[in-house]
Amino acid sequence: MYLGGSISEYSFGNIQTEGDNVRRLCSFFAVMALALVLVGCAATKAPLASDPLTIASQGSFFVGGRNVKSNDLAMVGFFPPTGTITVDQIYVHYQVPVAAQRKPLVLVHGCCLSGKTWESTPDGRMGWDEFFVRRGFPTYVVDQASRGRSAADTSAIVQVKSGRAGSDKLPDVFGAGQESAWQIFRFGPEYPKVFPGMQFPLEAQAEFWKQMVPDWSRALPTPNPTVPALSELARKLNGAVLVSHSQSGIYPFEAASIDQRSIAGIVSIEPGACPKASDDMSIYKGMPILVLWGDYVDQHERWAGRLKACREFASVANRAGAKAEVVVLNDVGLPGASHMLMQDKHSLKIGAWLADWLDRHIAK
């Protein structure tokens, strides 16, 4: 460090002072370098629920729907029985991050559930709707037709109750009991046994059971009205990745048969069904497709058969030019996932793996 003059012109005390200055400057630059490292880490770290959530916009809307005129809307006196209602629409809640560059994700729930599937986990942790926003993806959470905030047509029930139709005209609505759901969701081989290492937060199961709602899917037209609504939503978004789960697992594939141009990719999580290997695969040419599975699948006959069928689909689809993968989380170092893997204790690790897959396979 040059202070003017030669070293010989300075006393011993001045030389000591110069050494102190050098040490101070070295310490200053070391602190600055550490601060820059910490800032860089903060920019790339995994999102935390404690970090402020900054979004460009949020809101909700409906897609699809049709008007139905009925003489059996009510028997309560203060509402007339005759009128027009709207049915078969889907409810959509969205959040868009600041300066979003990735394709939107449309999150579709499965049987006996609603869009709550993707929100805060039963034990209060960050849900995938928020996680993927923090990772830069606009997220659109759907309530299927006749589920959650998407209204159902109750006219047939009123018609039977009023005596104007027989009980055989009642809609085929059903609910899933906690004991049967326990096995189907693979918390364990049977209620209340638990699979070793299973990651669903069973300490919060009472909160999870509150998410279960009546399922109207068997009372709806074919294809399920959710399917054309998803196709319409993807077009409105100028391209989207459809992320489905369980019962809705087949819906993105069916939406692709309507218009594959607006579907940037498909992520089907433990689908109730994949397309049959004999189906027309040309609609999936060039399309990134991920069929994602949790653990213990081989210990449940229903799911083992579906995994096998999905592997057959992927093989045939790839020969037709698709970009399909079937991934079991245990094979990529994420064991213990239940059927409700987006709510498991390691759900954010699974989400991070999925976000990386999307970044590698979906064009921005």
Rank of each mutant, 00 (worst) to 15 (best):
C111T: 06
S8F: 12
V98C: 04
Q199P: 02
P81V: 06
F62M: 11
S155V: 12
A35E: 13
P189T: 07
T86G: 02
G115S: 01
A255T: 12
G351M: 01
F313Y: 14
L202N: 07
G59M: 08
F78R: 08
S120E: 10
E301P: 10
Q178S: 01
S347N: 07
S231A: 14
V92R: 01
S150R: 06
L25K: 15
E179T: 14
P192V: 13
H361L: 02
F78M: 10
Q101T: 14
A234I: 13
F313V: 09
Q58L: 13
S155E: 12
P221Y: 06
W353A: 01
G77R: 05
K323E: 05
K323W: 04
R235H: 14
F195Q: 03
L237G: 11
C274Q: 01
F132C: 04
G65P: 15
T84F: 08
F200V: 11
L34E: 12
T154M: 09
V213A: 04
M340I: 06
E254C: 11
H346L: 02
G351W: 00
F79A: 10
C111D: 01
P81T: 06
W118P: 05
G351D: 03
A152L: 05
D356T: 09
A165N: 05
I90S: 08
Q58R: 15
R66L: 12
H109P: 00
V68P: 10
P52C: 07
I157Y: 09
Y191A: 12
E18A: 13
P122W: 01
Y2E: 12
R164M: 03
E325R: 07
A322S: 03
L307V: 14
V31I: 15
S282P: 05
R360N: 09
